[in-house]
């Protein structure tokens, strides 16, 4: 009972937060609402008994990603208001379509059934939750059954990294960067020249 209450609370706040993310006027607020959504999602994970995922969500998404977002949004002076032009114009149609879809999905979920052997099939690959810790269970799956997916995800991240570097990194001339190797490799002879200056003669 309490579980159900908590679930609906987290879920409702998450959805409301999601709506706010896209409707808030101030982009900083949007990001803050996003963080709220993440927290509630983490709460949902906790309810499912997936405490590892919950913590990772908080640490990675809230701690790193969202904060980075915040920095970017604050640093870039973008007039988000201009983006919203024409928003109202499409609101009625958009709302109508959204409503239709929502009603239909509600209908579907209202009569939801499962395949006869769904429960047994879905339980099969997971280790016994009671026996091992959450982290260990994940680890077992990721490095065994889901090894392929794990590696594939790694490749996706590699592409993301390459792409980010490719699209943003440019070597501009005249930028002074610290190159430790070069600093260390410098020797006295290269930089220092000792000259005898005759007194009174100038250089």
């Amino acid at each position: 009972m309490i579980q159900a209450l908590v679930f609906y609370m987290f879920a409702a706040i998450a959805v409301a937060g999601g709506v706010m993310v896209i409707s808030a006027r101030n982009p900083v607020h949007s990001v803050l609402f996003l963080i709220l959504v993440f927290f509630n999602a983490a709460g949902l994970f906790l309810l499912l008994g997936a405490e590892f995922l919950a913590m990772v969500l908080v640490v990675v998404y809230v701690g790193a990603v969202a904060v980075l977002f915040l920095f970017v949004v604050m640093m870039l002076d973008i007039n988000f208001l201009r983006f919203r032009e024409g928003f109202l114009q499409y609101l009625p149609t958009g709302a109508l379509v959204g409503l239709v879809l929502l009603v239909e999905l509600a209908l579907v979920f209202g009569t939801w059934t499962f395949a006869p052997d769904a429960a047994s099939v879905s339980a099969a690959p997971a280790p016994d939750v009671a026996a091992v810790s959450n982290t260990e269970a994940l680890g077992r799956l990721i490095y065994t059954d889901y090894f392929y997916l794990f590696q594939a995800a790694g490749m996706v991240l590699l592409v993301a990294m390459v792409g980010a570097i490719l699209l943003t990194l440019r070597s501009r001339p005249g930028v002074r960067k610290q190159d430790i190797a070069r600093q260390l490799a410098r020797r006295k002879e290269d930089t220092l020249e000792v000259r005898k200056v005759p007194s009174g003669g100038g250089i």
């Binding site: 889901y146 392929y148 997916l149 594939a152 995800a153 490749m155 996706v156 592409v159 993301a160 390459v162 792409g163 490719l166 699209l167």
Partner: peptide, 17 residues
């Protein structure tokens, strides 16, 4: 469905870039 999705994303992400 999962390997489908990951393959698709790997491809798509490369294509976006």
């Amino acid at each position: 469905l999962m390997s489908l999705y990951l393959g698709l994303e790997l491809q798509s992400l490369s294509l976006y870039v």
